[in-house]
Amino acid sequence: MATEANGAEEGGLVFHPMDQFIVKPLFGGGEVGIFTISNVTLWMALAVLAVIALMVLGTSRRATIPGRTQSVAELAYGFVYKMVEDVAGKDAVGFFPYIMTLFMFIVFANFLGLLPMAFTPTSHFAVTVMLAMLVFLTVTIVGFVKNGAAFLGLFWVSSAPLALRPVLAIIEIISYFVRPVSHSIRLAGNVMAGHAVIKVFAGFAAIAVVSPLSVVAITAMYGLEVLVSFIQAYVFTILTCVYLKDALHPSH
């Protein structure tokens, strides 16, 4: 933090920490339309290819004694499967491919975004809000389809004293609708902040005296970002499981 204050005093330094998040077309200039091939398209496609490489090509030998890639694929499978089973319950296993899709996409988008010069789709609210809304809509629809009106019991805390219940119901409803907001901002915010901070530290590297410190700081931040990449994917997935559990078993 002291470094930042020093750097600001220097002046003349050029910081564009947010430039890495700009969406731009890959071919030609012009506006970004809905179907334009942009850097978003490229890095999402790379994430898709990475998922296919790991989960399909990596397991193509179907070995009983797995190789390295197959071990990783099985590890990912077991990790998410166990999470769904433990957190959301055994009857949520039908949602496993859906949750696995979310997890694999976020993990690979995050990790590919850590490559130098990369673009990180998950740093954009457009992406994370959409992901969170998908989860929110799924959970709400599943809740009403499976439980009917009983799903509203989620907001009616039957274990609380009768007088408190309406107040709690209002709080519960607000918290329910805030879920997709926190769900999406948490992911995009974490990823964006880390990447922006790395860029800021990189800006300081222009000053010869500070540059060793800057490199150390970038390395440290990068390590932290590797952790954050996985942890945020994990958090997003486990929250999805928690919400799904509410939808399947709304009683408190």
């Binding site: 978003v40 999402m44 898709v48 491919p97 899709t101 996409f105 457009a126």
Partner: peptide, 21 residues
């Protein structure tokens, strides 16, 4: 202005991953 673009490609990516998985 580019939310539509991102959401479109996100849905494409998710659908592809979902079907492959």
């Amino acid at each position: 202005s580019n939310w539509g673009h991102q959401i479109f490609w996100l849905m494409v990516a998710l659908v592809v991953i979902y079907f492959v998985l």
